[in-house]
Design a protein around this nucleic acid. Structure first.
Lengths: 236, 236
DNA sequence: CGGGTTTTTGATCTCCTTCAATCCTAGTGG
DNA sequence: CCACTAGGATTGAAGGAGATCAAAAACCCG
């Protein structure tokens, strides 16, 4: 098994403030794992045996409710950490992580975490920052769901996805992984029907360009306008 | 200025794994501050000069949206940390913390955080755990808002408040600080009108007992049943 | 006792869900 | 290479949970 190329991961937030030597030592304990499209990195409820960094591809983290409904927690982009259950004191994964594209992750055994943190305190600090950022994002989501209409929420969701994982194409910015109307519905707390209606409307107005599990934003600025619109705003 | 009584704070989660000496050293840098009812511990957007532990009383953390709507993020009970913006890399407070009762907080200058963490790595680990737990709770909230009706969400909110800050009284469990219908609406993403209607209904069925900014749960078990009820459940 | 906050309750309205088909599109296997 | 098929998307119609609009009532504090 070849060691992992340090240059690829040297500037990830998780390793901020680590020397090259430290990084080497840390990476020596990691394994690189290929996860095929639609494969699971880990599953909700499963014993948290490892934590990960996504190197390549895209991963969807989703939770299943007791009633059997699925909610998308977030999409993970390359460079982000996932499965840090242990670090936050959970014995098992709180969500399922599914590769939406062929993906590659670095994996460390959870058991190594306490030792790694002791030797490299920056890991704890960096993880704290990451988890804090996610807490902020999740709060934003709560606030959106409390105060905004579905249309605004969906527009915002698309803009965030495009920002996080957008690829420029001729006609605009394409979301760089397959995503269905259903997925968007599960991110925004609505139904695929409503999402479909909204996207259809936007497509006919030229704001976006859709396809089977594909979305291209043609006029992000107009989507921003939509997202910022308050319920009682009337078109000028 | 008297030093703070260590025995009161020795077993807070923030200081788990700290020796008595360490605790002494850490507490030496803190000031104890009294915040009167309706006073703010800190305000959203304000420079994050300090972080806090609530010693006594109750604090409401709320966020104001650009559109001027308020959302209650959480209620803080004695022993919990608040205002840890700096630790998660924020230069200013993301929410406003208001005492809903006369309260007392311990305050450390934010500037001391990096040094404290360096000397007492357990602080970072413990804070990570706390922030992780809050992330989980916030995810639960997103899931509830995505999949449950208002009635279920309000019932759950009451049960959580009672669990976190309930005081046993003759007729049941009283939420131990003043809380209005409006506050509950802002916690559950609905309007005070809907909350009022629900609580009125529950009161007439003997599940709760209300008053001006006062709520007593008389039959928590029945509220649990309500909270677990799925939309298409019909009464037996 | 007065005035402001909090709560209640009614009536109406609307955004979104739910129900129900139908239509596409990309794989797949012959 | 093409028909077949299954998951995904679209679209219509109807209904309902909860928001909004509007007042009145209750309560607390000074």
């Amino acid at each position: 098994m070849a060691t992992i190329d340090t240059s690829l991961v040297a500037k990830l937030p998780l390793f901020a403030g680590c020397s090259a030597d430290e990084l080497d030592a840390i990476l020596k304990e990691a394994r690189s794992i290929r996860v095929p499209k639609n494969g699971n990195v880990f599953e909700q409820g499963e014993d948290a045996h490892s934590f990960f960094v996504l190197l390549h591809g895209h991963v969807r983290a989703s939770k299943l409710t007791p009633a059997g409904e699925q909610v998308v927690v977030r999409y993970v982009a390359p460079g982000e950490t996932l499965g840090v259950a242990m670090a936050i004191g959970l014995p098992s994964y709180p969500a399922t992580a599914t590769a939406v594209d062929d993906s590659v992750v670095l994996a460390w055994p959870t058991a190594a975490w306490p030792r790694l943190v002791e030797r490299h305190p920056a890991l704890a600090t960096n993880t704290l920052r990451t988890v804090g950022a996610r807490l902020q994002e999740t709060h934003s989501r709560v606030i959106e769901m409390s105060t905004q209409q579905v249309e605004q929420r969906v527009a915002r969701a698309l803009l965030r996805l495009a920002k996080q994982s957008g690829r420029p194409v001729e006609t605009g910015v394409e979301i760089d992984f397959p995503i269905s109307r259903q997925d968007i519905a599960q991110m925004t707390g609505t139904t695929l029907h409503t999402v479909s209606r909204l996207l259809s409307g936007w497509e006919s107005r030229g704001l976006i360009e859709g396809g089977r599990r594909r979305i291209v934003l043609r006029a992000p600025d107009q989507l921003v306008a939509l997202a910022e619109q308050t319920p009682d705003d009337t078109a000028s």
